[in-house]
Computed example of a mutant assay.
Amino acid sequence: MSAGQVAALIAAGAFVLLVLLLAIPLIKLGRTLDEATIAIRKAHMNTDPLFDEANTALTHVNAQLERVDGIAANTQAVTGNVSALTSLFTATLGGPLVKAAAFSYGVNKALKARRRAKQDGEGKHARRGKRRGGRK
C-alpha cells in the first residue's frame, strides 16, 4: 500500500465517522418532527368541537345582548316619560305650589313675630294686664 492509498483510507474512515455523527442528530430531529406532526393532528381534531362550542356561546351572547338592547331602549323610553311627567308637574303645580309655600312661610313668620311681640308686651306691662281683670 502506498502512502496515497493509506491517506485515502483514513479520509474514507473519517468521512464514515462524520456521517455517523451527523446521522444521530438527524434521526432525533426526525423523531421530533414526527411527534410535532402527531400533536398538530390531535390539536386539529380537537379544535372542531371547540369551535362548535365557541359558536354556540357566541350565539347565546348575541341573544343576551339583543335582550339588553331591548331593556336599554325601554329604560330610555321610561326616562323620557319621567322627564315629561316632571316637566308637566313643574308647569302645572310648580308655580302654585311655590306660591303656597311662600304664603305659608310668610304667615308662619308673621305669627312668630306676633307671638314675640305679645310676649315682649306682657313682660313690660304684666301688672297692668292683671289689674284689669286678669287678661293676658
Rank of each mutant, 00 (worst) to 15 (best):
F103K: 04
V78Y: 04
I10V: 13
S87P: 00
G70P: 00
T79Q: 14
G121C: 07
A102H: 04
T90A: 14
T79P: 00
L58W: 10
S2R: 03
S83K: 07
L17C: 10
I24S: 10
F15Q: 08
E122P: 00
N55W: 03
L29R: 12
T86I: 14
H125I: 03
D120P: 00
A77W: 00
K136N: 11
K42P: 00
A8H: 08
A63P: 00
H60F: 04
L97D: 06
T92V: 05
Q76M: 08
A8F: 02
D34T: 08
G80E: 04
L97I: 09
A39H: 06
A91F: 09
V82F: 11
Q64A: 15
L97W: 06
L21F: 11
L97P: 01
G70S: 07
A102N: 09
L97G: 15
N55R: 14
G30A: 13
G134P: 01
G70Y: 02
K118F: 12
I27W: 11
L93E: 03
A54V: 14
T75Y: 14
V98G: 02
G13S: 09
I27F: 04
V16M: 11
R128V: 13
L17A: 14
S83L: 07
H125F: 13
L50M: 08
L93T: 04
L65G: 01
R116Q: 07
S87W: 01
T92H: 01
A73Y: 05
M45I: 15
D34G: 08
R115M: 02
Q5G: 08
V6K: 07
